[in-house]
């Protein structure tokens, strides 16, 4: 094969990746470089001068209390939603994978909140979980003789409330992914296992969970992506309160912008870029190892 032909052979491949790569470079990488560059400049919303300031923006970051809270909350949100979702949905998916009468109706109902917009879901739950007399859930709780729960107003509870709302909205999605995966696990495996006398727990742990590895991967990746980017649901419910207890990466970044120190906000964002990269590496590396182990 001569060289010309080789080039000719690669051109269609390049052409087919080009739209994705170009868009990504233009609308993602270039702005990102802007951000990184701004992070070395003193740029505020009260001065027309933009001056190079070296690392001075970064020096201020370790003192920022919000940074720790928001990274912690984002990671908590991401992990907790993934774990809770999986714990609830895996058994449900197994049940709904069997020949149960009405399983399609249940599937349809469980998936329903997925199609609602996060903003609307947030507003809706804000009303439902309000600690005022209008709050429906608290009406039930007090009606049963318990004390009101301050779902969004108690700093110790608020983040978990948001996590539960997120689980409410998205667990149907996770369920369907598991269902799809379950259909690929061959029935023979199940039967072989029951002939071996494996009980339900063994079966779940040794056959279903490894078999669900691809779905777990998808769900963890989606969950982490959504978790690190969580914004709408926070804005629609607590807006970071009470007392910054539910700030996440994006909401704190948002308020840094509101403070009008763009250079500092950019440095803040760059730190998160590093965090996101680390999380991505850990995740992908972890999955690779797991898959290798399963493959053996």
């Amino acid at each position: 094969m001569n060289r010309n032909q080789k080039i000719k052979n690669t051109v269609p491949y390049i052409a087919m990746t080009a739209p994705a790569v170009l868009l990504f470079l233009i609308f993602f990488v270039i702005p990102l470089f802007f951000t990184i560059r701004y992070s070395f400049y003193n740029w505020t919303n009260y001065s027309p001068d933009i001056t190079f300031s070296g690392l001075s923006n970064y020096v201020k970051i370790p003192e920022d209390k919000m940074l720790k809270t928001s990274i912690k909350n984002s990671l908590l949100f991401a992990t907790a939603t993934v774990v809770i979702q999986s714990v609830i949905t895996m058994p449900i998916a197994v049940v709904l994978n069997s020949k149960l009468r009405g399983r399609n109706i249940f599937r349809a109902i469980f998936f329903m909140p997925v199609v609602m917009s996060t903003l609307v879901v947030g507003y809706l739950w804000k009303y439902l979980l309000s600690s005022s007399d209008y709050g429906f859930v608290n009406q039930i709780i007090t009606g049963l003789g318990f004390e009101k729960i301050n779902f969004f107003g108690n700093g110790n509870v608020a983040m978990w409330t948001i996590i539960l709302v997120e689980v409410w909205q998205w667990f149907g999605w996770a369920m369907v992914i598991y269902l799809g995966n379950l259909q690929n696990i061959s029935g023979d495996l199940f039967e072989a296992a029951s002939v071996d006398g494996a009980n339900a727990w063994d079966r779940f742990w040794h056959i279903i969970v490894p078999g669900l590895a691809p779905a777990i991967k998808i769900n963890v990746v989606t969950g982490m992506i959504n978790g690190l980017k969580v914004f709408d649901i926070i804005v629609a419910t607590t807006n970071g309160g009470p007392a910054h207890r539910t700030e996440t990466i994006l909401t704190s970044m948002y308020s840094k912008f509101s403070d009008g120190n763009f250079g500092y906000a950019s440095a803040y964002g760059t730190v998160f870029l590093v965090v996101a990269m680390i999380v991505a590496c850990i995740l992908l590396g972890g999955f690779k190892k797991w898959e290798e182990r399963l493959g053996q």
Binding site: K126, S130, S131, S132, K148, N150, F152, G153, P242
Partner: peptide, 11 residues
């Protein structure tokens, strides 16, 4: 602290 879970609009 209950008021922290109530929106201004509700109040």
């Amino acid at each position: 602290s209950e008021m922290l879970g109530i929106s201004n609009e509700e109040a």
